[in-house]
Design a binder for these strands. Structure first.
Lengths: 238, 238
DNA sequence: AACCTTTACTTTGGATCCAAAGAACAATAA
DNA sequence: TTATTGTTCTTTGGATCCAAAGTAAAGGTT
């Protein structure tokens, strides 16, 4: 049974259910019954119903035509699409930011992220804990860019897309064998961050957008999402 | 009081509340209380709570830090962002479709939309009823493209963005003075549709994407969204 | 034996009740 | 008079109960 919130002793049903699904306790395609989940989480049916609504909007659950919800299943194509959506939206954010101009504050934030990333790379190798650090760093970098666009509309669109299970940072595999690969990915990601920052600073909107879109594929390229192997994206074929 | 569903006599609380908000009965920034809305709609608090959840996810409502929900208000920049998000996502869909290749069925659907649009234009002027026809036509055209991408991920991302009040087709103003302007817009939109179709047919992904992104701005250019005037979008400034 | 009908059960949606957390207001002390 | 604390009231979140719709199963009829 999941732990309850510290401050008010209440259980976050949405988070718990999301976790159960991403852990595979409720498998993709499986029918989800209110009562069953309610008993599983030791709450009444009401919060579960609320949670179903939210999780449906997030795309994790799907309403069956007749009755009830099923756990949505994602194909490899869905994963690719989600990555491309992320790229398109973050690319948009980057372009807007470049055109608008980077403020002192955002500039400092981004520089800080980059220098901390630099420090991580300088060690020459990774330990498990570093992956957490990088995840935070990475998140900060992206969040700073999206946040600086001013409007919540783009931010929300990205956030909703990120609710999909494979897009979250949780799914990163942390076994020793993957550390080398992860180090390579991190170097690449860092280099891409540097380029994005450069484009942003120079006010090169189109370039910033293009770089950000390419950067979105990094999870797929290095296979840390969903345990998928290399997944290509078709280029413009005339 | 809103009308109830024909088949089961139940009230669609979400739709009703959405309508109330878009009609301005609940103004942007206004605090929304469960009990108040429940009495207004003649239902108990429970369905209202469900609706709040959904409408929050859609972006229409915003959770206040402390308690309750307020009707979200959108700035002109938000409108621009929503348009650009739509452009980015539909552009993505168009690129994917072009690269994947247009099937017989989709080709027929798109051609049908275009020829019906052609017929509408040939009349040389519009009457009010034509605007409805065009709206349906336009929706079909876009839906065909997005639907043909195969994955629901992109479709859902677009659908969520379209929940924003100003992005919906309902907000089109239909007074006589606007008909001329609307005719001009329709000609432009039709021309853009033709170009997109051409690019799709030829498998020119990058071009299809670019055209679709430009097409997204048409509502702003012709000021039929939210009654706003011309709103420019900055181009890549070095 | 197959198909239709009726009945019982499962499951969801809505209403009401209860508890707890915030907010507003008042009273008291500095 | 102002600030702080205690009390009351508003409002939300959760639990339980009830009704309705859909599904499955059983029994009867052709």
């Amino acid at each position: 049974m999941p732990e309850k919130s510290e401050k008010n002793g209440r259980l976050n049903v949405i988070a718990s259910l999301r976790k159960l699904i991403s852990e595979g306790v409720y498998a993709p395609g499986e029918r989800l019954k209110e009562l069953h989940v309610a008993e599983r989480l030791q709450v009444s049916r009401m919060p579960v119903r609320l949670a179903f609504r939210t999780l449906e909007q997030e795309g994790l659950l799907q309403k069956t035509g007749t009755r009830g919800y099923v756990v949505r299943q994602f194909s490899e194509e869905d994963v690719l699409c989600a990555v491309e959506v992320r790229g398109a939206l973050e690319g948009l954010a980057a372009r807007r930011l470049a055109e608008k101009g980077v403020t002192e504050e955002v500039d400092a934030q981004l520089r800080d992220c980059l220098s901390r990333g630099e420090a991580l790379l300088d060690k020459g190798h990774l330990i498990k804990a570093d992956i957490e650090i990088w995840a935070t760093l990475n998140q900060e970098f992206h969040r700073a860019i999206v946040g600086a666009t001013g409007s919540r509309v783009i931010h929300d669109a990205i956030a909703r897309n990120d609710h999909l299970p494979f897009a979250s940072a949780d799914s990163i595999v942390i076994d020793d064998a993957a550390l080398d690969r992860e180090y390579g990915k991190l170097r690449m990601a860092h280099a891409q961050h540097q380029l994005v920052f450069q484009a942003l600073s120079r006010g090169e909107g189109a370039r910033a957008e293009m770089l950000m879109r390419e950067h979105a594929y990094i999870g797929l390229r290095y296979g840390t999402l969903f345990g998928l192997g290399e997944v290509g994206h078709a280029t413009d074929a005339k």
